[in-house]
Every structure is written in C-alpha cells, then in structure tokens.
Design a binder for these strands. Sequence first.
DNA 1: ACTCATTATTGAGCCCAGTCAGTTTAATTC
DNA 2: GAATTAAACTGACTGGGCTCAATAATGAGT
Lengths: 200, 200
Amino acid sequence: MPVGSQPLGRRERNKQQKLDRITAAASELFAEYGVEEVTTQQIADKADIGAGTLFLYAKTKGELLLLVQNAHYAEALERGRADAEAIPDALDAVMAIVRPIVECNRVQVDNGRTYLREMVFGDPTEPHHSAALSIVAQTEEAIAAVLGREELAGARDAATTARIVSAIMFVSMAASVNAVLGTEAIVQDIRTQISLLMPR
Amino acid sequence: MPVGSQPLGRRERNKQQKLDRITAAASELFAEYGVEEVTTQQIADKADIGAGTLFLYAKTKGELLLLVQNAHYAEALERGRADAEAIPDALDAVMAIVRPIVECNRVQVDNGRTYLREMVFGDPTEPHHSAALSIVAQTEEAIAAVLGREELAGARDAATTARIVSAIMFVSMAASVNAVLGTEAIVQDIRTQISLLMPR
DNA sequence: ACTCATTATTGAGCCCAGTCAGTTTAATTC
DNA sequence: GAATTAAACTGACTGGGCTCAATAATGAGT
C-alpha cells in the first residue's frame, strides 16, 4: 500500500510533527519573553502535548534552548565564513567570522548568555548540546583556516590560536558585567583582544 | 558597662556568629558531598537556623558557594604571586600564578566548575560575587605585572594579555569536556595556549 | 520597668523543572 | 481481525530553591 515515496510509518510522522510543534512553540515563546520567563508547562501547552512529553524530546529546558538556537548560530557561522573569504587582512577576516556570531548572540541578551552557559556547563552527551559543540568546533576551524592563510614558516599554531579566540569570545559574550553592552561594544572588545594574538 | 574592647552589641555578635556557623556548615557539607548533592535545608539544619534565615546571609545557593570558596582562591592567588617573583622566565612565572588556582579549582571538580559558573553568570551586585570578581581582577593584575617585567618598548598590552590568560583559564577549567581531566592535564592545556601569547 | 519602633528570624507554602507508573497508540504476528 | 508486543504519551506527583506574612528579639527613649 505505501508507495515508495514515504517509507515513514505513522509513528515516525507523528514524532516528527510533535518535534516541529515543540520547536516552533519554544522558539516563539523564548523569543518573545526570554528563556527565564517561560515555563516548560507553557511550551507544552502551546505545542499541545503533555507536560512530561516535552522531556522525551529534550532532556532539560536548557537542551530545548540549544535545539531552538543551534540553527541560528550555524547560519551565522556560514555567513561569516563566506564574508571572511573576500577579506585579505587576517584580523579583519577573523572579525568577519566573529561578528555574525556576536550579533546572533545579542538578538536577546538573556537567551544568548543562557545558550553559552548551557554549552559550557550542560551535558555534552545530549544531542543538541553536542550539536552546539560541533558548531563551535567548526567556528574554530574556520578561524584557523583564515589564520593559516598567511601563516609563515614556523609561526604560531593556527588551531590553538583559534581556540584562544573562541575562549575570548565566550567570556566577552557571557560575562555578567558585559550584559549591558551592545553588539558593537562586544565586537570591539573582542577585536582589541584578538589583535594581540595576530602575528606582527 | 561595655569596656572599649568590643563596641559590638548583642545583635551584631549574634549575626556574626550565625554567619560563621553558616559558613562552617556549608563548607563542610559542600566539601564532603558536593554542592549539587547538598540541600539548603541541610545547611540550615547543620547551622541550626531556620530555612529562610539562610537566604538573609546569601541570596542564593550559588552565593553560598562563592562565600565558602572565595577565601581558598584568594589564598591560592597569594601563593602563586609569591612563587612567581622568584621565576625569571615570563611563561614559567605566569604558570606559577596559574597553577595554584587550578589546583584550588580541582580540589572537587563539581564545586570548582559550579564556582566558575556562578562567577560568570551570577548576579554581580551580590557581595560574595563581587568579591570573587575582585579576586579575578587581582589575578589579572598579578599576571600583567609579570608580563610587564620584560615588556619591551611598544610591545603588547600587558593588561589585555592578562585578560586573555584569564579567559583561557576559565574555559579550560569550566568546559564539560575537560571535567574528566586532572590538575596536571588542565595546567598543561593552559600552558600550551598561553605560550602562544608570549612575546617571541 | 515599660513602651514601641526597628531589625532579625522563622517555617509553611509557592513555583517549577523534571520523573514515573499507568495508559494509549502503532506495528507485527498468526 | 484479534492478540501480542513495543513504543510513545500523559499528568499527578516530588524535591528543592526560594519567598513572605507573621513572630520574636533588641535596644532607645521615658
């Protein structure tokens, strides 16, 4: 009866549908009110599922945030990667990668900071968490690639330098003290630090 | 009646005493079982105060951890600062400051990581939190001082470099992925990164 | 000694993330 | 198409951090 076009049973389809509803519900509520102000009950209600069902799709509220935001960060990374290619100066090229990520992070400051918190302190065996770590790894690779372009014989280790850039970004975006700063101020703060890393 | 020796009323003395009992209780319980495994109720019981009273002395459980641990970190900083003075090589001197802090952080991995989490994401207007930030600031100053020793004309900005070192330390100690690493592995990981920062 | 305003303490109870025993639904077998 | 098995779902419940209205302790003024 089922023609080859969809080898998915009703079960799989239902699951996918539910995940979609959850993602949409969480996404909208988080964007409008911020993670802290939204209860898991509200998300479950909006997705039209039982309170317990939510946790079959994301083990914690934090995982839910990662699920919702990962796509945005992946997109930001792609944009930055493309932009960087056209830029000859290494520092400017690195910043071209950094900027979209900071912008993404600052769309909603609380959510952005919570995202970072979950990434560093959450359970890395959870799927959305490991996806987030993969984005970080890709970001570091992209930065390392840019650095590698002009690396001279016996100069710095590009991969390690990229890790340092990553750490700088994390702290600048996450620190409570910087919560009041806008995108530009954060970008500038990061740039000042990274400039010390560049070969001269 | 009250001779000049103690201008404190019964009120102040009681308060101090209670704070001492709370600190002692929290300190022992955290050390033995880890922050996550201890309830605020247990701490209150052990300190022989009401459950609500606890929160008059520390607004959150996280603040309680900062209260208990700040002293250890301050001590570690002092040790490192002293050690660094006798070391001529800049990288080694910086590592002399770094090492005791990592050791302090790794006495109990969960507590160490939670401490860092509270520091970055907690409420900086709370007293113990701001004390923690002050220790970080002092650490950066100590590192900057070491770097300044051999800084040549027009070279790097020591204060900014110290900030970067601070970020590197934070991420290396906090990352879930590194939770399994021992003190030595963390120290080595940090050293590899910092070595790229040093003037060559 | 006795107000009385101020400050400290208390614990019952709120809120909410996350769990689990029980139920429903889908797939499979005969 | 009935029976069986497995997977998915549910919402009442739990545990724990934190609040707040009520209460007690303190000490200044008289």
